[in-house]
């Protein structure tokens, strides 16, 4: 291990790290609300409704196939259908479809885990279903989503390394390029690993602050109107 060489590698890996961050944060910002909202909605649908079947199929496919295959579908099949998409959009799209698939399950499970009595209390007061969901069920479900969503975020960042296969010059692709050009592997791998770790660790620190705010008394419930 040559520290000087590692420092050089580090500097060269910073721009591709930027791309990795941009890819995964963009995907995250889209996939999390999309997945959680669809999941909460799915919890309200009966199994037979067309929208429910569509959502279930999405989840089934995402869970049942490797992300590598999902990315290749975007890369090889979309252009054949006449969709010329920039690589970045393709990469984000693949990550969103994948991650939202998992987050749908997180959202659905969290909403369904709120006790039936909470629904009944809200309905008996005279709230309609929609207001009951928004006012009482979702705030309770939201806290139960934070842990699993945090977990999914780190999965998402790691999954972004697979985008190297479609020639996106993100962190992993860049690391591969450097190590095969110089035929020195260990230093590059260690630096690459450290960069992923720092990024994921940083995100999870931010998420933990968010989680603490959610679980403090009152939390998300009726945000604003009961704020004192």
């Amino acid at each position: 291990m040559d520290p000087f060489y590692m420092a050089q590698v580090l500097v060269r890996l910073l721009p591709p790290l930027g791309l990795t961050m941009l890819l995964s944060l963009t995907a995250l910002v889209i996939a999390t609300p999309l997945g959680l909202v669809l999941g909460a909605w799915r919890a309200e649908l009966s199994d037979q409704q067309p929208a429910a079947r569509l959502i279930d199929t999405w989840v089934l496919i995402v869970r049942g196939t490797p992300i590598l295959i999902q990315i290749f579908v975007f890369y090889f099949i979309l252009p054949k259908l006449g969709l010329q998409t920039p690589l970045f959009v393709m990469g984000v799209g693949a990550l969103v479809l994948n991650s939202a698939g998992y987050q749908i399950e997180i959202g659905r499970a969290a909403v369904q885990s709120v006790a039936k009595g909470q629904w009944e209390a809200a309905l008996a007061l005279g709230f309609d279903r929609r207001a009951s969901l928004l006012q009482f069920i979702l705030p309770q479900a939201a806290r139960r989503m934070v842990g699993p969503v945090m977990n999914e975020l780190s999965q998402l960042i790691k999954a972004s390394s697979v985008l190297s296969v479609i020639t996106l010059f993100e962190l992993h692709k860049a690391a591969e390029a450097i190590s095969s050009a110089n035929l020195r592997f260990s230093e590059v791998i260690v630096v690459e690993g450290i960069l992923y770790f720092v990024f994921i660790f940083g995100i999870s620190l931010i998420a933990r602050v968010f989680e603490r705010r959610l679980s403090s008394a009152g939390g998300l419930a009726d945000a604003g109107s009961f704020a004192r």
Binding site: E120, A121, A124, G126, A221
Partner: peptide, 22 residues
């Protein structure tokens, strides 16, 4: 339904208070 339920109060065996509200 909503206006009916506003005129009829219900108390449950398991209380069913909203746990995140005082």
């Amino acid at each position: 339904l909503q206006s009916l339920r506003r005129r009829v109060g219900m108390v449950f065996q398991q209380f069913n208070l909203f746990p995140n509200l005082t």
